[in-house]
Simulated assay, not measured.
Amino acid sequence: MQVYGVTGWKNAGKTGLMERLVAEFTSRGLRVSTLKHAHHKVDVDQPGRDSYRHREAGAHQVLLASENRWALMTELRGGQEPSLSDLLAQLEPVDLVLIEGYKREPHPKIEAWRSDADNPLIAPDDPTIRAVATDTPLDLDRPQFDLDDTVAIADFITKETGL
């Protein structure tokens, strides 16, 4: 299972790039999963639903299943956030896992960067960033791609991972 990341600051275009890359890789016949890190409180459940009530009552895990999908929710209840490697181990084997966020982890990444977002570039100080997807040319010592050139970015990731 190959792992490749898309990182960058808020409003850099990470999620849009992730969405386009998933569509591109799946159109090439690859099985793709994603893992996204959130810095804010996230809840995939809704107050009042049975599964929410199970969690509120104190369940450590709640598995919600239907004919279309299933989701396993684990409550940390003050425990430590799982490591990236622990989370990756929870995924079923696929060809490629695309990771959004986790900018300080050692896996290879592409940085999404938009000039109007007014954030510093991460790449100059981070060798795990193998390329930058940007909306403007940059003076940088690694490959650059137009942020919207999904095919070229996917080709680069394919070459990097050997897929």
Results as ranks from 00 to 15, higher is better:
residue 1 M to K: 03
residue 1 M to V: 15
residue 2 Q to C: 15
residue 4 Y to N: 00
residue 7 T to K: 01
residue 8 G to I: 06
residue 8 G to V: 02
residue 10 K to V: 14
residue 13 G to W: 00
residue 15 T to K: 06
residue 18 M to T: 11
residue 19 E to M: 06
residue 19 E to S: 13
residue 22 V to D: 06
residue 23 A to C: 03
residue 24 E to Y: 05
residue 26 T to K: 11
residue 26 T to S: 14
residue 26 T to G: 07
residue 27 S to V: 03
residue 27 S to E: 14
residue 29 G to K: 07
residue 31 R to D: 04
residue 32 V to G: 00
residue 34 T to F: 04
residue 34 T to A: 06
residue 34 T to S: 09
residue 35 L to A: 02
residue 38 A to M: 00
residue 38 A to F: 00
residue 41 K to S: 11
residue 43 D to V: 05
residue 45 D to F: 04
residue 46 Q to S: 10
residue 47 P to I: 10
residue 47 P to N: 13
residue 49 R to V: 12
residue 49 R to M: 11
residue 49 R to N: 07
residue 56 E to I: 06
residue 59 A to S: 15
residue 59 A to G: 12
residue 60 H to S: 13
residue 60 H to F: 15
residue 62 V to C: 02
residue 64 L to C: 00
residue 64 L to I: 15
residue 65 A to T: 12
residue 65 A to Y: 11
residue 67 E to Y: 00
residue 67 E to Q: 09
residue 68 N to K: 14
residue 69 R to D: 07
residue 71 A to C: 14
residue 72 L to V: 13
residue 74 T to G: 05
residue 74 T to H: 07
residue 76 L to D: 05
residue 79 G to W: 04
residue 81 E to L: 15
residue 81 E to I: 15
residue 83 S to M: 08
residue 87 L to C: 07
residue 90 Q to I: 07
residue 91 L to M: 09
residue 91 L to R: 01
residue 91 L to F: 13
residue 92 E to Y: 04
residue 94 V to Q: 09
residue 94 V to Y: 11
residue 95 D to L: 06
residue 100 E to H: 02
residue 100 E to P: 05
residue 102 Y to N: 11
residue 102 Y to T: 04
residue 103 K to Q: 08
residue 104 R to T: 14
residue 106 P to E: 12
residue 108 P to G: 04
residue 114 R to K: 14
residue 114 R to S: 10
residue 116 D to M: 09
residue 117 A to L: 03
residue 118 D to L: 13
residue 119 N to R: 13
residue 120 P to K: 15
residue 122 I to K: 08
residue 123 A to S: 10
residue 124 P to N: 08
residue 125 D to W: 08
residue 127 P to W: 07
residue 129 I to N: 11
residue 130 R to P: 03
residue 130 R to A: 10
residue 130 R to C: 01
residue 131 A to I: 07
residue 131 A to L: 05
residue 134 T to C: 13
residue 136 T to F: 09
residue 139 D to K: 12
residue 141 D to I: 04
residue 142 R to S: 02
residue 142 R to M: 06
residue 144 Q to F: 00
residue 144 Q to N: 01
residue 145 F to P: 00
residue 147 L to I: 15
residue 147 L to Q: 12
residue 148 D to C: 03
residue 149 D to M: 10
residue 150 T to K: 06
residue 150 T to L: 03
residue 151 V to G: 04
residue 154 A to G: 01
residue 155 D to H: 04
residue 156 F to G: 01
residue 156 F to I: 06
residue 157 I to C: 02
residue 157 I to Y: 00
residue 158 T to I: 06
residue 161 T to Y: 08
residue 161 T to P: 10
residue 162 G to W: 05
residue 163 L to A: 04
